[in-house]
Each structure stands twice: as structure tokens, then as C-alpha cells.
């Protein structure tokens, strides 16, 4: 018993306004961690079976857990019926994951006219220096920025990210798609309610899962996450 009291705890539980935060030691072995977690959850003060739903966040520190280990950890905690795991956060990821994230967030520059019948597919964001002609298609897992005219089809967030946007200097698409939300150009004579600018527009998906076309200037407010702030230095005179 004395040994246990002297060494720092492997599982620290903190209460916050949003629920509980479990801070897990990243130096001990994984099994030790699970054992202590089990003990902690068995202690009387954390016997939460009858209480209201408790939201839990897990901090793993510099410990890397693979998918199986994360599943085990979830299962162990979920033994308590009224615990909901909101988030599992670790300070480390594998090289492979890092590489994937880099590829997903990379901007691919392309100076080209995408012509009728051509399909361009990009992982990450696309910056097109040229036009997309009628019948041409550009697809990206991320955002699409077109410095020319978009007259064909643009599909952003093709692996499901509905935060993606499509911008074009001249926005006259035949069809737009973000994640699985579609919008086509109005037919001739079809009534269009919203105000259109056509020049320097962006398309995004709003809270009601509708695609909206708006002035490019609105992007700053709508998608603050687009900013690569770490690389921006603002020089004040």
C-alpha cells in the first residue's frame, strides 16, 4: 500500500464544467494503466451507475494507442453504463497518419484548362490557374479554388467533408457538389430567388445542409479554419 501512495497516480480524474477529464500517465505500461483505470472506476466515488450521464474526455499524453487498444480502452470505460466518451486525445500520431494529414491538407496548384470530358481528381485542396469548361469536372477531397471561370462541374469534399468550399473568379457552374450535397445551375427561365454576383463567389454548405453561393469576402467568417495562421506575419506600419 505504501508503494502505491508514494508514486504519482497513473490515472488522474478532474472534474470540469463539461464533465470529467481523465489524464492518463504516458510512462507506465499499458496494462498497468488499464488495471489502475479499472480500480479507479471501481472506487465508490466514481460509481456512477445510477447518476446522470457523464461526459468524459481522455488525455493520453505522449502515449500512442493503436485502434485495437483504443477499442479496449473504450470498452473498459463503457462498462459504466452512464459514461459517454467525447474525445480521446493524444499528443502523438504515427508517421503514416502525419503523412496522410499532410497530403489531405496540401494545396495542389494546376495551371490548365480543364476541357470538356476531362476529369481532374485531387487529394487535398485544388488551386486551378485556368478555367473549367462546360463538360469538364474537377474533384477534390478538400477545397477547390479556381482563379478562372468555372463553367463545368466542381465537386469538393468528395470523401465527405461538408466544411469544404468551392471558390471561383467567375462562377457559372453547370453543377456543384460539396460532400453529398448537390446544386445545379437553374434552367433557362427558372426563377432564382437569391442575389447572384457570379464574379468572385464561393459555395458552401450551411447549417441546414443547403448549398449557398455567396460573396468570396464572406469566407473569412464562414470558414475561419481555412487560415494557415502559423505561416502568416502581419506587418503593421
Amino acid at each position: 500500500m505504501t508503494e502505491k501512495e508514494t508514486r504519482p497516480p497513473r490515472v488522474t480524474i478532474k472534474g470540469t464544467r463539461d464533465g470529467l477529464t481523465f489524464i492518463l500517465d504516458d510512462q507506465c505500461s499499458y496494462n498497468e494503466l488499464l488495471t489502475e483505470l479499472h480500480e479507479k472506476l471501481s472506487e465508490e466515488q466514481y460509481r456512477l451507475d445510477h447518476g446522470p450521464l457523464v461526459h468524459v474526455k481522455l488525455f493520453l499524453g505522449k502515449r500512442y494507442l493503436d485502434d485495437q487498444q483504443i477499442a479496449d480502452l473504450k470498452e473498459q470505460i463503457s462498462e459504466r453504463k452512464n459514461i459517454v466518451i467525447d474525445d480521446i486525445r493524444s499528443d502523438v500520431i504515427t508517421v503514416e497518419e502525419a503523412e496522410n494529414r499532410r497530403k489531405d491538407s496540401r494545396v495542389t496548384r494546376l495551371a490548365k484548362i480543364v476541357r470538356s470530358g476531362q476529369v481532374i481528381e485531387i487529394r487535398g485542396d485544388l488551386l486551378l490557374l485556368g478555367d473549367v469548361n462546360p463538360g469538364g469536372t474537377v474533384r477534390a477531397t478538400g477545397n477547390i479554388f479556381i482563379l478562372g471561370a468555372l463553367r463545368g462541374i466542381a465537386q469538393a469534399g468528395i470523401s465527405g467533408d461538408d466544411r469544404s468550399i468551392i471558390c471561383a473568379a467567375t462562377m457559372q457552374p453547370s453543377q456543384l457538389r460539396i460532400a453529398d450535397i448537390l446544386r445545379r445551375a437553374p434552367e433557362k427561365g427558372e426563377k432564382v430567388e437569391e442575389e447572384r454576383f457570379e464574379d468572385l463567389e464561393c459555395a458552401y454548405v450551411n447549417g441546414q445542409f443547403e448549398m449557398v453561393l455567396d460573396q468570396l469576402q464572406r469566407v473569412a467568417k464562414l470558414r475561419p479554419e481555412l487560415n494557415d495562421e502559423w505561416n502568416v506575419r502581419t506587418v503593421d506600419m
Binding site: 476541357r115 470538356s116 470530358g117 476531362q118 469548361n133 462546360p134 463538360g135 469538364g136
Partner: peptide, 13 residues
């Protein structure tokens, strides 16, 4: 004509 230009665009590609 729009249709001819569309096909010409394909050919140019």
C-alpha cells in the same frame, strides 16, 4: 454553336 464548341473543347483536350 454551343454544341460544336463543346465538342471542339473535347477535341482540343
Amino acid at each position: 454553336e454551343v454544341s460544336a464548341v463543346r465538342d471542339a473543347d473535347r477535341i482540343v483536350g
